[in-house]
Amino acid sequence: MMCLPASPPALASRLGLGLFVLLCLGIGQALENKAVRSRVGEKVGLPCCYEIPSSESLHRYRVYWQKNVTEVVLAYSDGKVISKHERYRSRTEMDPWNLTLWLSPVGLLDNGSYQCIVQRNSIVVCSQPVVLFVAADFSKPNITAEVSAESCESTEMVITCSSHGGFPKPRISGTINNMSVEWDASWVSESSFSPYNVTGKLVLNVTKDVNITCSVEHSGFSKSSSLLIEKTNDCIVPPVPPPYNVIIASIIIVITFILAITLAARFLPRHVCSHCCKHQDSVEEGVKGCTKRSMSSKLTAETSSV
């Protein structure tokens, strides 16, 4: 089968589709190059959409770098600086050929949208925005454990993971013995471009040794810490207090015993004394009787001898 050449309408349609694809790819590449990421304290360059040909010079152009449309960061005309914002006065410079705007050192307030506008002979040859994202590193997470309840089988602990001084708002994650865990997280920041303090809490029943990790992630950066919690085997069972009714019965028995001893100590000596007196009287009467009988016998014997 012989292939026939495409008709003019079909060819135009294919060319239009190809141009559309190229346009989409160009737009996608432009959108991809719009965002620039940096960290606090670094030097960062914001690319412009135009590069001056080697046959020309900056003197034939006007270049404006502005932020949020209304704030002029830097402006050049006839190769000289004609305007520079006070906040950027000692922190900015521009490359005279590719017109890149350099900021150093960058801070959180530098976050935002910038635009490079290039004019030649009063004609705008380039105007394209670029977004700067400035991140601040968080401190290394600090993990602490506080015992809230303990028994022989398990120990209930409140695990806290905290970090501060970072930007933008982070995500906090972690693991327990390599198993993912969700933290109950809270964030504090004074304003939209102020550092964040983040705290995550977790209630955990520890029945064995566990290894806990906590990670603070933001803008592709991450910092992590770990803590090993060992479950001790020592267990001291506290004595169980007796029931209330047993305590009352014991008190009654003790009181009764004390009363019995008191009464016995008061009345028993009198009874013993009276018994002893009676016994002594009987003994004395018996002695007297024996004496009388012996004397009578003696008198009878004497009478008989006479």
Rank of each mutant, 00 (worst) to 15 (best):
K223G: 00
W187R: 01
K208Y: 05
G165C: 13
S194N: 05
D184F: 06
S173K: 04
T199P: 00
D209Q: 12
S189K: 01
C214L: 10
P243Y: 01
N211Y: 05
G165P: 05
H218L: 06
N205Y: 08
S173I: 01
D209A: 08
V240R: 07
T199V: 15
E217L: 13
S224D: 03
L202H: 10
N197V: 01
N197D: 11
S192H: 08
T175S: 15
P243I: 07
S224W: 06
I176V: 11
N205K: 12
E217V: 15
S225W: 04
N233R: 14
V240G: 01
E230K: 15
N177F: 07
K223W: 00
N197S: 13
S226L: 09
F193E: 00
E182M: 04
S191P: 01
V210W: 01
P170W: 04
S173C: 04
D209E: 11
W183G: 07
E190P: 00
S192A: 14
L202E: 01
F167K: 00
K201Y: 05
I236L: 14
R171H: 09
I212M: 09
Y196R: 00
L227R: 14
D184G: 05
S226M: 13
D184C: 05
C235R: 09
N233P: 14
P168Q: 01
D209V: 06
P238V: 09
P239S: 13
H164S: 07
L227T: 04
S173Y: 09
V188G: 02
S194V: 02
G174D: 02
S224Y: 01
F167H: 03
N197K: 03
K231E: 12
N177L: 08
I229G: 10
D234T: 11
V216I: 15
I176P: 03
D234P: 00
L228Y: 10
C214K: 02
P170K: 04
K223A: 03
P168W: 00
L202N: 01
E182K: 08
S215K: 04
E217Q: 13
P241H: 08
V216E: 07
F193Y: 02
L228Q: 13
V216S: 13
S173L: 04
E230C: 10
K231R: 15
L202Q: 05
G200F: 06
F193T: 00
P242Q: 07
W183P: 06
H164F: 02
V198L: 10
N205F: 08
K169H: 09
K201P: 03
I236Q: 07
T207C: 10
L202S: 03
T175N: 14
I172T: 07
E182T: 02
N233M: 14
I176G: 02
P168S: 05
G165L: 13
P168E: 02
N205C: 04
P242C: 10
S191F: 00
D184I: 06
V181E: 06
L228W: 08
V198W: 08
S180L: 11
D184Q: 11
V188D: 13
V203L: 06
G174V: 06
N205A: 11
T207S: 14
N197T: 06
G165M: 12
W187S: 02
S180C: 03
F221R: 11
V216N: 09
P170G: 05
P195G: 02
A185S: 15
P170H: 03
S222N: 12
C214H: 02
P170E: 07
P238C: 04
E190N: 07
C214N: 04
S180R: 11
E230P: 01
Y196G: 00
S215N: 04
G165K: 12
V198P: 01
